[in-house]
Amino acid sequence: MMTTDGNGAAAPRLPRLGEPAPAFEAVTTQGTLRLEDFAGSWLVLFSHPADFTPVCTTEFAAFAKALPRFRELECELLGLSIDSVYSHIAWMRNVEEKLGVKVQFPVIADLDRQVALAYGMIMPGESRTETVRCVFVIDDRQNLRAMIYYPLTTGRNVEEILRLVKALQVADRSAVATPANWVEGEPVIVPPPLTQEAAAQRVATPDLECVDWYLCTRTL
């Protein structure tokens, strides 16, 4: 579906949470990959403005170091920028040489901007030629579950992205929600009751800790 951007030009509709993630086939540093290749795993698809730029280099090193922790969550990483695969390869080699970190996840070379446009990664107010720092968390059924957009100036916090994936997986597994600043191991929120009878029952449930009938937590 197409909409129009601020200049009246046709632009693809931005992806929405809870909907299937836009499909793609793309050239990457690990060959041609399709979104469907990741089905059955969680996926963090993230874009960066450009190779050989300082903030992106620190982010890539951080993502690369965290890859084993993402894989413990059955989650893969997939980077993207509007650079050639040759540029990506040179940059990956440079990151390994200068920072001692081997980048073992694939990076999309999105020269035709097809994936960037499908996911709304280009924000003309920030840059007309580069992708901003986007993160898309896609679940194992290929539905889009979370989106984060950061400007060019500000590097992302990989710990927060790990926390987000864990929180989404806990929500799926245990039919709960997670409170502000939740980290793994802390109590989770049980869904609020939908009837007066359930509300009365809720506050009387012994294994729940309730501030009030609508805000109860439990330990998993």
């Binding site: 690990q30 060959g31 041609t32 990959l33 399709r34 469907e36 290749d37 990741f38 059955g40 795993s41 894989r71 893969e76 694939p106």
Partner: peptide, 12 residues
């Protein structure tokens, strides 16, 4: 190898 690599490799 991770599943996505196996799938893309099998396709090739």
């Amino acid at each position: 190898r991770p599943l996505f690599q196996v799938r893309s490799g099998l396709r090739e």
